[in-house]
Nucleic acid binder design. Structure first.
Lengths: 138, 138
DNA sequence: ATGAATTGTAACTAAAATAGTTACACATAA
DNA sequence: TTATGTGTAACTATTTTAGTTACAATTCAT
């Protein structure tokens, strides 16, 4: 199971996007996510490096740098995920065995396809879709 | 990053599928995967529950119960994975905030789509494709 | 029947990942 | 100049992951 960073990152961006009139601080976001403000700052720091938001130490709040239609879940996912590969492959299989010797390369390409299917779908979904769905909830 | 269980499970099934003349024991598989035999038995136990292989305590080796064309990576994935959901969603968001209140349901459907894209691709790939690729390596 | 080899599983361990926390430097602005 | 923020390092608790030890139960050759 993949960690909650994407989940929290989307939460952060949704709040920033829908409150651009008044500054949304990490404390305020943390209260909505229900976690520690540092967790928010840590993730927002990654979103900042990815060019999705900006912020200044001392100045409260974060500012969205793109239109919500131009931010895909894939961008957010890649901003917060450190590992490139979705699936782990066991290491040091026995090269004496023909299967052990070739399994890693084989799995690499099989897993890559699966990962790309996932990423293509994440690229389709935009922050605007999330906000749209959020606001049409009961 | 997803754990190595799928990776190891595919390795196991590849060995079982390509050595149906002589019994492939968990010790033998473990030597190729390069891990402890118990790790192999633990995963093969899950493959057994999923109806992909069979085995008998005392009797060496595992037997494939399906044609390699009829075993998809999705079947293997679902056999070894305990959690239904690919992405975690942070829990207890603040219901006082309209975003906190609706974020989980929103993320649920967004993540479900992504997961289904992944699973559709895993369903396309068969054990036979893996073995094909394995045997055409240099 | 006996004993070696094997599967099946419980229980424990070490290491890594995950999320949360404390502490504090530094920036901003009233 | 003081209160309020961001940014980040360092530490901690919990969970997950993979590996290991131990052993019951089963099969089968002798």
């Amino acid at each position: 199971m993949i960690n909650t960073k994407l989940s929290v990152a989307i939460h952060i961006l949704s709040m920033v996007a829908t409150s651009q009139h008044q500054p949304v601080t990490s404390d305020y976001i943390a209260a909505s996510v229900n976690t520690n403000p540092v967790v928010i700052r840590r993730i927002s720091s990654q979103l900042k490096k990815a060019g999705l938001i900006t912020a200044q130490a001392g100045k409260p709040g974060f500012i969205l740098l793109k239109n919500i239609e131009d931010i895909s879940l894939l961008m957010i996912y890649q901003a917060v995920q450190t590992q490139d590969e979705l699936f782990s492959i066991h290491n040091n299989p026995n090269p004496q065995c023909w299967i052990g010797k070739n399994i890693q390369a084989t799995l690499d390409q099989a897993f890559l396809r699966a990962q790309q299917a996932l990423e293509n779908e994440l690229a389709e979904q935009k922050l605007s879709d999330i906000i749209q769905h959020l606001s049409t909830q009961k």
